[in-house]
Design a protein around this nucleic acid. Structure first.
Length: 282
DNA sequence: AACTTACTCAACCGCAGCCTG
DNA sequence: GCAGGCTGCGGTTGAGTAAGT
């Protein structure tokens, strides 16, 4: 027994929105708000459209703060670095790019960045998986084996993107020489996805790099994701939000390192991904 | 100028998860 | 605890346009 459709597709208009419909939706949302229910919004706004269609139109096109096109090099770096780290979680990636929508970022990746990244790649990571890195000579492909997460087959949301992630790693490695992951525990025997804890415990992440080194030298300056992502972005301060990483602690005996707790609530299976990657390394 | 191919991006589809009664 | 409804998300499609021949 299938679920009821959200609307009668035969009776609602589909396809491209007209300027009149745009104006009608914009006017209604700006004066009344969404009203807590997209399904009934078209009726209230006098639009012969599916609620889902209205929602998509508003979120991806009509919202006043939307930016279209004109991606900067910093944005490219952020997209590729985050894609490499978390896969195709476009909503999370878009949330780090003010004015960008998940649909926009997804389209941009699929039509431009993916090709751009692929141009400088010859071999893919073996089987799309993380491989222990032999000393790769400096050059276009040296990063491919560095931090490609080994994606568990159970991690369906990211498995299909492993090859692209490899490309992205090559173009914009996830902060090269910046991060190493200390696996929190040996990888457990494979379990069905449904048996995984909904929110895994934070992973301990050991990070390398100028910011971390200077932080520890300074006696343990608290770091947050603004610093982390600023590293990824090549020094640009682009991130208005700040709670990706928590629990900074310097390591007195290792002045070039600092330990983080990775917020599992942000990227629920990131700890799993990276923990697996580290296990593959060691 | 006409046709074909490649590209872009808005929109649709279906699923998963959350919420509520 | 369960079922149904709604929202959000990621993958895919297809119309429109640009570029190439």
């Amino acid at each position: 027994m299938g679920r009821a459709p959200c609307c009668d597709k035969a009776s609602v208009k589909r396809g491209p929105w007209s300027p009149e419909e745009d104006a009608q939706l914009r006017s209604y949302v700006q004066s009344h708000g969404i009203g807590g229910n997209w399904i009934t919004l078209p009726q209230r706004a006098g639009l012969n459209r599916c609620g889902k269609s209205c929602r998509l139109r508003w979120l991806n096109y009509l919202r006043p703060d939307i930016k279209h096109g004109g991606y900067t090099e910093q944005e490219d770096q952020i997209i590729c670095s985050l894609y490499n780290s978390i896969g195709s979680r476009w909503s999370i990636i878009a949330s780090k790019l003010p004015g960008r929508t998940d649909n926009d970022v997804k389209n941009y990746w699929n039509t431009k960045l993916k090709k751009k990244a692929a141009m400088c790649v010859q071999p893919r990571c073996a089987g799309g998986a993380f491989s222990a890195a032999p000393a790769t000579p400096p050059g276009a492909h040296s990063q491919c084996t560095f931090a490609q997460p080994a994606l568990s087959p159970a991690s369906s949301s990211v498995t299909s993107s492993s090859g692209d992630a490899c490309f992205a790693t090559t173009m914009y490695p996830p902060a090269p020489q910046l991060i190493r992951f200390d696996a929190p525990a040996p990888a457990p025997a494979p379990v069905p996805q449904t048996e995984l804890a909904p929110v895994p415990p934070p992973a301990t992440v050991t990070a390398y790099g100028p910011s971390w080194a200077s932080a520890t030298e300074a006696g343990g300056v608290p770091l947050d994701d603004d610093v982390f992502l600023t590293e990824l972005a090549g020094g640009e301060q682009l991130f208005p939000y700040g709670d990706l990483f928590t629990g900074f602690a310097g390591q007195p005996d290792k002045p070039d390192k600092a330990t983080f707790e990775l917020s599992a609530s942000y990227f629920p299976n990131m700890a799993e991904m990276w923990g697996t990657a580290c296990n593959t390394l060691t």
